[in-house]
Amino acid sequence: MTDDGVSIEARYEPSPVSGTEPSDQVALVVGHGFSGALERPALRRVASAFRQRTAVITFSFRGHGRSGGRSTVGDREVLDLTAAVRWARGLGHRRVATVGFSMGGSVVVRQAALCGKTDEIQPLHGVHQGERTGRSPGRTVGAPGPLGAARGSAGWADGAAPDAVVAVSSPARWYYRGTAPMRRLHWAITRPTGRLVSRYGLRTRVDPGGWVVDPLSPVAAAPLIAPTPLLIVHGDRDPYFPLDHPRMLASAADPAASELWIEPGYGHAETAASPELLSRIADWAAAHAAAHA
């Protein structure tokens, strides 16, 4: 359950090869792209590859799969990721890395930046998220304010800060429409007919209210992550986001705590990731999370 009262479906899979106790294993918490979900084949393939090296938590973002709520396309999804990271800590994992693909990539960058920092998170138009979904309501969300206010004076990020972050195929900035796939995606998000296609064709429920205030962008969030290690992975054949996106993220991030991998021949997100690339990502995340924790 997220801090704003959304029920999130998730799955925990310990690794059979990297230690017998959760405290001995790094946990990778994986955020999928828009229209993905826990049971989608691409995410299950990622989980299977990662599990050969680490424990894995996969989940469906709000508005996806059997999770509650509606998608806010990267804004309040930071609360979904936070709930999953806290779950990993609660299971006994001392070292946790987050890995996000496409929309999930923007979420892991923003979530890591907001741990211990402040940002304005979207009010849901004066209602509980739980009221939107018919589930038990969470805290009332009022006017925009510090994200830390969601959990009172102790701060929302207790137990949620990752030990390493990997953003794969992530956008750097909002409202990008420079490629045909992104123009189609914006239609699916912003138009009533598009949201119907999203709901019934992509099985993704989009919040029709949109953003009241633009959330902190990934490129603005990137410099706030240090000293937590950050890996940015992008393909030179990505049909959604050209190479200026990962380069903008890398330029904004602290060079002492970040790396950029431009992968030849790689397309977009979890669907196009090869087993070899997934293995390298898992190895990097596990090693850097262990070193940073």
Rank of each mutant, 00 (worst) to 15 (best):
245 H>W: 05
55 A>K: 01
157 A>Y: 12
63 G>S: 05
97 A>H: 03
16 P>E: 00
83 A>W: 02
103 M>F: 07
40 R>Y: 07
227 P>W: 10
174 W>P: 03
102 S>C: 11
171 P>A: 09
208 P>R: 07
179 T>D: 02
220 A>I: 09
143 A>K: 15
242 P>F: 11
204 T>N: 14
170 S>Y: 09
212 V>R: 14
142 G>R: 13
23 S>Y: 14
86 R>P: 12
286 A>C: 08
6 V>F: 07
227 P>M: 10
183 R>T: 04
109 V>M: 15
146 P>R: 08
227 P>C: 02
173 R>I: 10
282 A>K: 00
277 L>K: 00
249 L>P: 08
30 V>I: 14
81 L>R: 06
261 W>N: 01
243 L>A: 10
161 A>C: 11
156 W>D: 12
123 P>I: 05
183 R>G: 00
58 T>C: 13
41 P>D: 00
225 I>H: 01
192 P>E: 07
46 V>P: 07
247 R>W: 04
4 D>L: 10
149 A>C: 11
176 Y>I: 08
17 V>P: 06
219 V>Q: 15
168 V>A: 04
202 L>H: 12
164 A>F: 04
253 A>Y: 01
238 D>M: 02
132 R>Q: 14
114 L>A: 12
8 I>F: 04
79 L>N: 12
257 A>K: 13
110 R>N: 15
277 L>Q: 03
37 A>C: 10
179 T>V: 06
98 T>R: 08
136 S>P: 13
203 R>Y: 12
14 P>G: 01
284 W>E: 12
183 R>W: 12
273 A>M: 07
33 G>M: 10
78 V>R: 06
187 W>I: 02
279 S>K: 07
161 A>R: 15
130 G>V: 06
35 S>P: 03
127 V>E: 14
210 G>V: 01
113 A>Q: 10
243 L>I: 05
129 Q>H: 08
98 T>C: 11
7 S>A: 14
262 I>T: 15
3 D>Q: 14
113 A>K: 05
26 V>R: 07
125 H>A: 15
92 G>E: 01
284 W>V: 12
13 E>S: 14
203 R>M: 02
292 H>V: 09
183 R>Y: 11
225 I>D: 03
79 L>K: 05
130 G>S: 09
225 I>A: 00
221 A>D: 12
57 I>T: 09
93 H>R: 05
